[in-house]
């Protein structure tokens, strides 16, 4: 709107034979005000990302150092490092479980809260509050609850099941599930809120029609409501996925990657290679791999979004 008005102004001035204003200075205040945004978009998001990708092909251990192009060496080394492989495996397990559980728990809770119950606000407040807490706090609380000497394990044992063993934080085989419990506790309320908003967007008439036809509620949910909520599910999915790739503080607080390297995750690998092991090239290669995995999720999403808007 403002653009058009300034352009017509300029045209009028030209008609009168005045000098054409330099285009760069038109709307100058707005451009100056938008400089931080332009800087962030170009220098940080594009520039820094390209810088990292470029340097992942070099031999830099410590910067500033002469960069030596080594091609895919860093990636080859990365994918033959056991710690990285464990990190990826953990991320896949944690990611798959988080996706499924968050969606299922989030939707189920939202559906329960949507059934005209009393005290909906209280229940919602209780289920969502962990989301306000940091991953550090979350990790430390669950570290304490899962403590083998005083926590859940010892309580169940003292109740009579003396051979009961549940010590995920000291058992490399299942440690990632210990982190999963904490992660779900922290994040599922958020998915519930999104799902609840989606359910509230469903037309009341659908429910009336289903009831007239005598379709049981659970069938209505599965065959009618969920397909209608596809966009909400996709939004939730992208959000959960982008949260999964970032998982770092939770692991640092709850297990510090232990026992051994059993609960390492890629984000932690990157930070440690860059700031502790002084092995920058590895850090860059690993972070570029993280970027690739995000793109794998994001590109179909963008495609769907654009395709959807073109169709409708």
């Amino acid at each position: 709107m403002s653009l058009i008005s300034t352009e017509t102004e300029a045209m009028h001035r030209q008609d009168r034979g005045a000098k054409k204003p330099i285009r760069l200075f038109r709307n100058l205040n707005a451009k100056v005000a938008a400089l931080p945004m332009i800087f962030t978009a170009l220098v940080i998001f594009i520039g820094c990302t390209l810088w990292t990708i470029y340097h992942s092909f070099t031999k830099s251990r410590l910067l500033p150092a002469p960069e030596k192009w080594v091609g895919l060496d860093q990636y080859e080394r990365l994918w033959s490092t056991r710690r990285w492989l464990v990190s990826i495996e953990n991320l896949v397990i944690y990611g798959a479980c988080t996706l499924v559980l968050s969606l299922v728990i989030g939707f189920t809770l939202a559906a329960l809260l949507d059934r005209k119950i009393r005290g909906e606000n209280i229940f919602r407040t209780i289920i969502l509050y962990p989301f306000a807490l940091s991953f550090i706090v979350t990790g430390l609380v669950w570290q304490w609850i899962l403590n083998p000497e005083f926590g859940i394990q010892s309580i169940v044992q003292s109740l009579g099941w003396e051979r009961f063993a549940f010590d995920p934080l000291n058992n490399g085989q299942i440690v990632i599930y210990g982190i999963l419990i904490a992660g779900i506790w922290q994040g599922s309320g958020f998915i519930m809120v999104i799902m609840l908003a989606g359910l509230r967007g469903i037309d009341q008439e659908i429910w009336k029609a289903a009831r007239v036809d005598g379709i049981p509620a659970w069938k209505t949910y599965i065959f009618i409501v969920i397909p209608m909520m596809k966009p909400v599910f996709i939004t939730a999915l992208v959000m959960i996925a982008s949260g999964i790739i970032k998982v770092y503080d939770l692991v640092v607080a709850q297990t510090s990657g232990g026992p051994g390297i059993a609960s390492e995750v890629p984000a932690k690998y990157v930070i440690e290679k860059m700031f502790e092991a002084q092995n920058l090239g590895q850090g860059f290669a690993a972070s570029t791999m993280m970027l690739v995995s995000v793109l794998v999720v994001l590109i179909p999403y963008i495609y769907l979004q654009l395709g959807g808007s073109r169709r409708g």
């Binding site: 005000a33 962030t40 594009i46 930070i271 850090g283 994001l298």
Partner: peptide, 29 residues
């Protein structure tokens, strides 16, 4: 209110940039 040429492009980059893992940008910063 004050769109200028390219402003929407910068904004789009900004929004998609939010999905880039921080680890990618941390060291150059």
């Amino acid at each position: 209110n004050w769109r200028f040429k390219g402003s929407e492009t910068f904004f789009t980059i900004l929004i998609f940039g939010a999905f880039i893992p921080y680890q990618v940008m941390i060291y150059p910063i």
